Simulated scan of single mutants.
Amino acid sequence: MKQGILAQTKPFIGQSRQSIRQNADCVVMVPPKEFGFNAQTAQDNEFQTRSSLDQGTLRAQAMHEFDAMVSGLRAEGVQVVEFDYPLSETQTPDAVFPNNWFSTTQDGVFFSFPMACENRREEVKPDALVSTLAQAGRVVKQQDSLVQYVEQGSFLESTGVMVMDHLSKTIYAGLSQRCERESLQDYAERIGYPHVVSFQTQLPSNQPVYHTNVMMAVGERFAVICLEAIPDYERRFVAKSLAKSKQVIDITIEQMNQFCGNILQLETVTGDKVIAMSKSAYMAFSPAQRKQLASHGKLLPFDVSTIESIGGGSVRCMLGEVFLPQS
């Protein structure tokens, strides 16, 4: 797959003809009961910072932020499925970010993904989550997995590294050690998305952005993106692709560092649009940008400052979208 080129994937024979939705009305959230600084992910996640707090205090603060976010989303009419995952011998400090290891489709397919960091692979518990989803009235008709790519050293951390425009069946992906071309192309073919827009990214440190969903978000009719983080030779191509059907809201590196790109548009049970984001992201958007976003849905800012600073991920990372049909 060449850089800066819209890659064409093979047609998907079993593709559903049902109406395509951009936004989920149900999300999976995982309580941060083992939350902490993850030294493994910190190797390439520049958004993480260490804390002087003791582990008990840290987890209590993270749990408070988590509970408030769950309550807030439910109060707005978004279905939240809490996955109180079974513990194992290896601790999972990043389990609060479930969107990195699974995804779902409207056809009822549940995918599991290859994680780059060893302790994050312990989070991948598809059978347990499928059972929890069934109890919540969401039907998994088929399971599929790309976990085998771990053996090849090829990783693809789900909607952390892939930002989807479901309406145009386009995947946007910033390439990094957590997003390899081979597994990316394989997934696009499996779900029948004919367009993959892959590109390089670069932070001021010259390192790539570890997850695409930190620098961009795609809603039904808008896209937030830090074009500054994309090299000149690809920036215009990515922006042009988004502008075909979206209002493009460009954010700066400084705004990206406040997680302005890590937001997610959702639907309520009544079909209303809401946009979940962190309080820090909300405050970092300019008044004009907030007005633009508010035209696409009610803005829902949540204070997840502990999870953001220690975990290096924000609100969107905490939300695993569920597109599965209801039973």
Rank of each mutant, 00 (worst) to 15 (best):
S71M: 12
A75F: 11
I225S: 01
E82P: 10
R17E: 08
K244P: 05
S241I: 07
V197Q: 09
A243W: 01
T105V: 01
S158H: 08
L53H: 11
K279V: 00
A75R: 11
R316E: 08
F47A: 14
L73H: 05
S295R: 11
Q326V: 06
E308H: 00
K240S: 15
V315A: 08
A284N: 03
P11C: 03
K273N: 12
V214N: 12
A281F: 02
M318E: 04
V27I: 05
I253W: 09
E321G: 09
Q61K: 10
E321M: 10
E267C: 10
V28R: 05
E122T: 15
D107W: 02
A128V: 10
Q207A: 15
V248I: 03
V197F: 03
K246M: 13
G297K: 10
N213C: 07
P301Q: 06
Y85H: 11
F47R: 11
I230N: 11
E267A: 14
S19P: 09
V109R: 15
Q15E: 09
D54Y: 03
S145C: 04
R120T: 12
A7T: 12
L58D: 08
V238F: 12
T104D: 00
V238G: 02
G312L: 00
D94Y: 04
W101P: 05
H64M: 11
K33G: 06
K291R: 12
I263A: 02
Q200A: 14
R59N: 06
Q143M: 14
R121L: 00
Q18I: 14
P98A: 05
I307E: 06
Y172G: 00
F102S: 15
E321S: 12
N257E: 12
D144P: 12
A7F: 14
V139A: 06
V274E: 02
V124N: 04
Y210F: 15
G261S: 06
L324W: 01
F12G: 10
Q202F: 10
Q91K: 11
A173I: 02
S286V: 09
P114N: 07
S314E: 01
S16K: 14
Q91R: 12
T170D: 07
R221I: 02
V139C: 10
V274M: 00
I225Q: 08
I5N: 07
K244D: 13
Q207Y: 10
V130A: 11
F66M: 02
I230W: 05
G14D: 03
V315Y: 04
A24G: 07
S131C: 05
N213I: 11
L266S: 09
K298I: 14
D54E: 08
C317Y: 07
M1C: 11
S286Y: 14
E180V: 02
L133E: 04
H195M: 01
G160A: 04
Q18S: 14
A288V: 02
T57P: 01
I275F: 04
Q292M: 13
Q185E: 06
V81G: 07
L146A: 00
A239Q: 13
P86D: 06
Q143S: 09
D272G: 13
K2D: 15
A95V: 08
T57Y: 05
V196Q: 10
K2R: 13
S176D: 04
